[in-house]
Simulated assay, not measured.
Amino acid sequence: MRVLGIETSCDETGVALFDTERGLLADALYSQVAMHAEYGGVVPELASRDHTRRLLPLIQQVLDEADLGRHGLDAIAYTAGPGLVGALMVGAATAHGMARALGIPVLGVHHMEGHLLAPMLEQDRPEFPFVALLVSGGHTQLVEVRALGRYTLLGESVDDAAGEAFDKAAKMLGLDYPGGPQVARLAEHGDPGRLRFPRPMTDRPGLDFSFSGLKTHTLTAIRTLEAEGALDDQARADVARAFEEAVVDTLVIKCRRALDQTGLKRLVVAGGVSANTRLRERLERECARRAARAYYPRGRFCTDNGAMIAYVGAQRLLAGERDEQGVMKAVPRWPMDTLRQP
């Protein structure tokens, strides 16, 4: 089965073609980061309009790369949520329109399930069951994964997600959007011994996260340094290092607890923040201590992409799922624990 995957949940237009027998045939991505950087964050109306401009050319690019005509498609999968409703509607309308014209099934899939299973696109893929840490822009979650659709939410952020906290810390430090990579680069020059920020919610049991207090602590540290006339380039790097260390330590501590609680030996880490080098190094060491194994998607599949949507769509389409004819789905808020096993 050849499945076209469409991702338009936020600020990246992703398209990919996945073959259930041959694997990933082609993928393309257009990022809107440069456009939104001017505003310091994603502008929903601009995001929707840009998806409209980019989506059809990207679909043609992927089909050309795979040397396949539109009538060679067997099904289409698209991101139905969560995400920006206008952006989601662009992908949903395009997918349903194409599927209707071609007479093939179409299915709206869950964006976070795409991230969750993105490592399945790799040659060295994890087997079920495993614990998953999902750290994308607006989500920080720990999930026990027993099979496709068999998900138990172990913990999640009660306020800001880790990615949002990175973006806000970057803005405080005068860095460009998106903040995660900018903070990580600045942190490389920071002195790890100068400042120590709190590791939120690690002094109590449980697997939930909270990063709003860390954000406030970061702002207070910056203002204190400003008042002392000491906020030079080195101090900004020291703040970035302390902030990144606090986020990474918090995520690692919670992953350790999740592995201990479930007794599982496989950890999947996915979403944009999973590309953070310091986080990967720390998780590798933590897993080695427990005779466990960590799995990640390749770099370009850490952020939003069409390949993960095509993959998840293919698995659920093979199980017989599909949208009702003419019923498009665009669900801005969609808890992943409501998904069912096909």
Rank of each mutant, 00 (worst) to 15 (best):
D208Y: 07
Y78P: 06
T224C: 08
E122R: 13
K254R: 12
V327Q: 14
A132H: 10
E244M: 10
G108A: 14
F166C: 02
A294F: 01
C287W: 06
F18W: 14
D232Q: 11
A118N: 04
A319T: 13
V252S: 09
L173D: 13
R257K: 15
D159G: 09
V239M: 05
K254W: 07
T52R: 14
E284R: 13
A47G: 02
A292S: 04
P57M: 00
D124K: 12
V109Y: 01
R100N: 02
R298A: 11
L173I: 04
G272C: 00
H36L: 10
H115W: 02
E324G: 15
S9E: 06
V131N: 13
E65Y: 00
R241H: 15
I253F: 14
D176V: 15
V143R: 08
A37N: 11
E12I: 03
G326M: 09
A294H: 05
R280P: 11
F197Y: 06
E226Y: 09
L116H: 06
E113M: 03
D249F: 13
D124Y: 05
D167E: 08
L55G: 13
L63Q: 04
V43P: 01
I253Y: 11
S48G: 11
A66W: 06
G155L: 09
L4N: 09
R199S: 05
T250I: 09
L133R: 07
A66D: 06
G114N: 00
G137H: 05
L251S: 12
L24C: 11
R223Y: 02
P178W: 11
T13A: 05
A246K: 10
S48C: 06
L102T: 09
L117A: 02
P129S: 04
Y39A: 15
Q61G: 06
L46Y: 07
F301K: 07
R278E: 15
V239Q: 10
L73S: 00
G299D: 14
P198L: 00
P332Q: 04
A95Q: 09
H96Q: 13
L117D: 06
T277H: 15
G263V: 15
Y151D: 09
G263T: 09
I6G: 00
G69R: 07
M98G: 06
A294R: 05
L173Q: 07
G149V: 01
L148D: 14
L175V: 10
A310K: 08
K329N: 11
D67I: 10
D233S: 15
P198E: 02
R223L: 15
Y295C: 01
L225T: 00
V312M: 05
R54N: 12
Q123N: 05
A132R: 07
A99L: 07
Y177P: 01
P335E: 14
F301W: 15
P342N: 12
R223Q: 15
I253G: 06
H51C: 00
L154Q: 12
A75H: 01
D74Y: 06
R285P: 00
R150P: 09
L63Y: 03
E324F: 10
R290G: 01
A16Q: 14
R340Q: 15
